[in-house]
């Protein structure tokens, strides 16, 4: 009985987590939509998770010199302020342009080298303890 309850709780928590990542993902795609009109291809794959206030998460991306990228971040939490910045493998910022509005935030990158880059997501403030986020990127 106890095991069943634990299992049910785990299922419930799992389902809740997926729900807010899904919502955040919708906002991330919304953040990317203006760039589709500018000829960018938005990837179907995405990063996502949840963070506490002032927490950061780094995700790795393989970028190619010659391409232009937009990294687009969304959150499901109204009133939360998040940002994304991109750094090269030595930890130097490579942001070319950033935009932020409400739950949407985006950064443009034009890699000068082909290689590994790190997109760092930060939750600056949020009305909730944990803030769901999702990050997609577009390229052309």
């Amino acid at each position: 009985m106890k095991k069943a309850l634990v299992f049910l709780m785990a299922l419930l928590i799992g389902a809740t987590s997926w729900a807010y990542v899904d919502d955040a993902l919708s906002f991330a795609y919304e953040a990317a939509s203006p760039y589709v009109k500018k000829g960018f291809n938005v990837r179907e794959d995405a990063w996502g998770g949840d963070l506490g206030v002032k927490d950061q998460q780094a995700v790795q991306a393989q970028l190619f010199k010659g391409n232009e990228y937009w990294f687009c971040l969304g959150t499901d939490v109204k009133g939360a302020v998040l940002s994304v910045s991109v750094y090269d493998s030595k930890g130097n910022i490579v942001n070319v342009e950033t935009t932020r509005a409400g739950r949407l935030s985006a950064v443009r990158v034009e890699p000068q080298r082909t290689g590994t880059y790190y997109a760092i997501v930060t939750v600056h403030k949020s009305p909730q303890e944990r803030t769901g986020w999702a990050l997609v990127y577009a390229y052309k």
Binding site: S85, G91, N92, I93, N95, R100, G102, I120
Partner: peptide, 12 residues
């Protein structure tokens, strides 16, 4: 809305 400039460099 939250004009905080990101750091120029980070320790990965």
């Amino acid at each position: 809305l939250y004009a905080q400039k990101p750091p120029e460099a980070v320790d990965l």
